[in-house]
Amino acid sequence: MTRSEELDLTETSAGRVSGQAVSAPRPKGRGSIGLLYLAPYIVGLVVFTAIPFFASLYLSFTDYDLMSAPRWTGLENYVELFTSDRTFRRSLYVTLLYVFITVPLKLAFALFIAYILNYRLRFINFFRTAFYVPSILGGSIAIAVLWRYIFATNGLVNMGLGAVGIDPVNWFGDPVNALFTITLLRCWQFGSAMVIFLAALQSIDKSLYEAAAIDGASKWTSFVHITLPLLTPVIFFNLIMQMVQAFQEFNGPYIITGGGPLKSTYLLPLYIYDEAFRRFDMGYASAIAWVLFVIIMVLTLIAFWSSKKWVFYAGDKRS
């Protein structure tokens, strides 16, 4: 962890999100040589991000099947989405449900384990590695496949529950349970959030806790009044990254549940994929993508806006 300490985690992750750390330490290059080094990035930015971004906004107002030219239909796609498309309503609901359950659960768990690991324990490296392995593999299709097996009616999880006297659960047959298996898969990958929390915890000055202990503060009090405030920059960072990612969950439902049962795991990215690449209704798919984008953007902006009230940056005079 030596290098990460030098890098000062709070500065890298919090400063980055708020976009503050922009100016170079000692700019010495002159003129536009710098732009030359940026050339690949600028071309890529325009061709693969900026133009597609606006093109998809345009497509969302059209009817386009890839064969004939896009036909402008105005707000028709959006009107249909919000008035008559029941699949969309269902999909939007389960997506929000999924994100609002998964992200807090995963972050709370990651913080809890990081907090325990932060005590000077033996084998800390062993545990850190063990807890991180699922994050390395979690995106893999192989793990989604494994999930299908262990949550099958006669799979490992039900066998384990049977051993402690709990009746087998029908994981994939029940709408709520099916969504929860995907939540569990993503919580299982709490490792990278945990490593970030752990690095931040290790950078907290121990004398703060000693001072609090002398004043008679309990562990819980010091956690609430010292640890949590000092962690808010990384909590904020993890929250945004995990949320943006959770809204785009595709592999889990695609492989594990196929969107079912009763569309209970039919998250919006799945719906977009089906509309765009199975039914080739590019206009309609773009409209759904834009609704999803606007939701993510609004929530991100709310997080940024509210962060002034709850994120504590070192050196701040507020307490």
Binding site: R16, L38, Y41, F48, T49, S56, L59, L66, S286
Partner: peptide
Amino acid sequence: LFGSVIAILLLPNVVTRIPQYIL
């Protein structure tokens, strides 16, 4: 430009995927 790096970092791929496919 540096702002755009952060914007891309936070931009969900799902918005650009369809036009990229067409491109």
